[in-house]
């Protein structure tokens, strides 16, 4: 298969490699149909996060078709032919944290937890394609991927929905949604969002889903502001107004809740 490999700081290359294989009973192999480059992949590209290794396969936002499942995978939950979006956090489904649905804190999926504890204070779960302190699982910017604990993470997608409508469920849509969720939006609220990058675009749409009446999006790039408008937001180009806070007060009669 072909895969995008991290070959050193600032160096990426597409390599032809052996296809992944089942290594554990609860693994599955996915033929990847869509994959994304995350903004956080730039931190690896630029060398800001240690414990990458030359030859590591990049990518933690991917989806595809299940082509092989290990003997320990519950067939009621996942079987060959299923179309799935793979969540980027690897969760075992059995530990203290997984039982409380705190999947990103799974304390079984990252045997290199002690490296993350040193650098971050505590360790998250294992992650796809995101350094060896998250255990160095091969990523999804490839034609095939190995998915550990495959009866827990992958989300089954019905036929008829195109990839580009669902692939964002792997990471970026939940990230934007979580941001909106964290400000405790009540029906009728007005929400201002600083920055209109990809995560913010999902935060804008999530804010409306959570009941916001108005969303005011702030950026300086017209193409991002236009995309925010398409999502229903009012916009402020901060290079064209004197004072963003004063502008917000004028727009909302000081009733800006978030």
């Amino acid at each position: 298969m072909k895969a995008v490999c991290w070959m050193g700081v600032g160096k990426m290359s597409v390599e032809t490699l052996p296809d992944p294989e089942i290594l554990n009973r609860r693994d599955a192999i996915v033929r990847i149909t869509s994959t994304c480059i995350c903004g956080s992949d730039l931190h690896l590209y630029n060398g800001f996060i240690p414990t990458m290794e030359q030859g590591d396969i990049m990518g933690h936002e991917f989806m595809g078709e299940v082509v092989e499942v290990g003997a320990g995978v519950d067939r009621d939950k996942l079987k060959i032919g299923d179309r799935v979006v793979v969540r980027f956090t690897i969760a075992c489904g059995n530990c203290f944290f997984c039982k409380r649905e705190l999947w990103s804190c799974c304390d079984n999926s990252n045997p290199n937890y002690w490296m993350a504890e040193k650098l971050l204070g505590s360790s998250p779960s294992g992650l796809f394609g995101y350094t060896h302190m998250m255990d160095g699982y091969a990523g999804g910017q490839a034609q095939y991927g190995r998915v550990p604990f495959a009866d827990v993470g992958p989300l089954k997608i019905p036929e008829g929905i195109p990839d580009d409508k669902v692939v964002f469920l792997s990471d970026i849509f939940p990230t934007g949604y979580f941001g909106a969720l964290n400000v405790d939006i009540k029906p009728g609220d007005t929400v201002a969002i600083w920055g209109c990058g990809p995560v913010a675009q999902f935060a804008i749409r999530s804010a409306f889903m959570l009941g916001a009446e108005r969303v005011i999006a702030i950026d300086r790039f017209d193409y991002r502001l236009r995309l925010a408008e398409e999502g229903g937001a009012e916009t402020i180009n901060y290079e064209q107004v004197g004072d963003v806070v004063e502008t917000l007060k004028d727009m909302t009669g000081t009733r800006l809740m978030h």
Partner: peptide
């Protein structure tokens, strides 16, 4: 859990 034996690029 392990990554021993997984496919990777040139080390």
């Amino acid at each position: 859990p392990t990554i021993d034996g997984q496919t990777h690029g040139p080390r």
